[in-house]
Design a protein around this nucleic acid. Structure first.
Lengths: 332, 332
DNA sequence: TTGTAGGCGTTATCAC
DNA sequence: GTGATAACGCCTACAA
């Protein structure tokens, strides 16, 4: 692999001049530029990013720490980030935390050593995720989806309370009277806020909150399946169900199929998170769509801006969800 | 940020010794090890990977170049790669080529400069994708999903011909008589091989190949939608349809819905690629499942092995698909 | 405008 | 077993 010195020798200039041409900063005599470019082509020179990174003590890498790339919500999110990153000249390193705090902490440490230019993280836990090491190290951080404990971090969220409110209100207004809520684990802000929205809707529509109509699971398919079965076995038996994320909804649908219950006749169903196949299943599935791609884009833009100006005050962005009423919640 | 020299001073040893302790290669006196570790903790020292990378002229990064993370097939694939990578101490950089050769080429160039430890690529084109630069630079490469032009590359594929054969044979054996095939663009090996399997099945079942029952699209939803409509308008009108990938199948389902045709009564449907919601739609969808996660794992393992021993002869792995017969192809 | 020279933080090669 | 020292390849004051 030729170095910048080989190019310099070949072009009859100094290494500094080659560097200047390559980086296009200072002005260089047109004739020299020409000779340097020719030498670069002839030798097939390519800049060694490792040396450059060390010298500049920074990389052009963004780390994205999320729980699981196989979740369509995170997939779209990552795509949004990646598109912005590419426009801004960064690459994206993927880190699946699997909601596992140890894995997440290991990634944070690794990312510190790698001197990534920035981090976008969906904190596995509001209370236990610790990004202070990153902040201390001066690494720009943007949080998405969930609010981090540390303040002063750029954040992109959706209005979970409002989204869950609309979902629940929609079911109540369709005439369902015993609407249950299947939400995520305690301590996850998304889970708690969606439960809060559910409660608000009950209250504002004159219904009483019943603990036996609320169940928590782990935001995964298996958990959704079991939790739905237990809700169906409860007393009172729900005639409506609001599920707080996409994966648990898959489990809920399986539970309903197993019990031979159909929507919207036996039970009205609304799910938080847009689902690619919501329109394809019969009956089609009513969802509270999160703008996942847009969340990713905004997070990427915030990160780029913070990298450019580390002193700017941190901002929190809250995007809206959109209720997409389909068949599963339309009371016959 | 403390450097290795700060640690050395603090522990009263040389930088070389600190390095030895940190890398655990050479044997160091137990007492010194202790002092070094204490100094590391006290100072909160963390290795600067940039300097290490430069010195060793290598990184612990794998680049994964695929067309789109939003495609569930690639998502599972990436997950498989990522899990192996983590076990082996590597991180994964994501590169979406969008099936765009320029973007792909740009990533290949970038990846060269970054001196990644290895590359896993799903080539956008068999003929036009050029990985020779990578090979010349000595970067280990593993191809997945599609066969690259250059030989001597580790490759993980599925048996597309066999999978498509089974899909088509299944439809014919169910009694569908005018089975159409919607495949991908010419030149994509996956598209061509799946078409080949379709043709083989027709022949072995005594049916004649009819050009008007074959249509090519771009492997995307929109293309699948339009191609399906044109197939339905063709003569003869198909009573069965084999769609060569997941995204086009979404388009096909939309086209069928628009025409108010239902499976399996009006038309038998089988799709290549497993689909997360295949079991949830009604009627459920018959698929030819690719072991996407497994492909990713195998590719990761091959890459790790090649990095360890760059001289080992390249191997090609072919995994099997599995026909998952569900309702959409079960002739009433 | 161009060249010289020093150093980014680490690891590997020497002597000791 | 340990310590000094020289790179790895690039960028950037500073000097010319």
């Amino acid at each position: 692999m030729p170095t910048i010195y080989d190019v310099a020798r070949h072009a009859g200039v100094s290494a500094a001049t080659v560097s200047r041409v390559l980086n296009g900063r200072a002005t260089v005599d047109a004739a020299l530029v020409e000779r340097v470019r020719a030498a670069v082509d002839e030798l097939g020179y390519r800049r060694n990013s490792l040396a450059r990174n060390l010298r500049r003590s920074s990389t052009t890498l963004w780390a994205v720490i999320i729980s699981d790339v196989e979740n369509p919500f995170f997939t779209s999110l990552v795509r949004g980030i990646e598109d912005v990153a590419q426009e801004a000249g960064y690459s994206v390193v993927l880190c699946n935390s699997d909601e596992n705090l140890d894995k997440e902490a290991a990634y944070i440490t690794a990312v510190l050593g790698e001197q990534v230019a920035g981090v976008i993280i969906s904190p596995a836990s509001e209370t236990a995720t610790d990004v202070t090491d990153l902040l201390k190290g001066g690494t720009p951080v943007v949080a998405v989806d969930r609010r981090p404990r540390a303040r002063g971090i750029d954040t992109v969220l959706v209005d979970n309370v409002q989204g869950a409110y609309e979902a629940t209100a929609h079911l109540l207004e369709q005439g369902y009277e015993r609407v249950a809520c299947l939400t995520g684990p305690e301590g996850a802000t998304t889970a708690d806020q969606r439960l809060e929205g559910y409660c608000n809707a009950l209250r504002s529509h004159g219904y009483e909150y019943s603990p036996s109509l609320v169940c928590r699971a782990d935001f995964r398919e298996r958990g959704g399946f079991e939790a739905t079965l237990s809700l169906l076995d409860g007393d009172p038996c729900p005639d409506g169900l609001f599920v707080a994320n996409n994966l648990m909804t898959v489990g809920a649908l399986e539970a309903l199929a197993q019990r031979r219950l159909s929507t919207p006749q036996d039970l009205g169903l609304v799910c938080f998170d847009e689902i690619p196949w919501a329109d394809l299943i019969r009956p089609s599935l009513t969802t509270v769509a999160q703008p996942a791609y847009e969340i990713g884009r905004r997070a990427g833009e915030l990160l780029a801006r913070r990298i450019a100006d580390p002193t700017r005050p941190a901002g929190a962005l809250m995007l809206s969800t959109e209720l997409k009423a389909r068949e599963s919640s339309s009371r016959p």
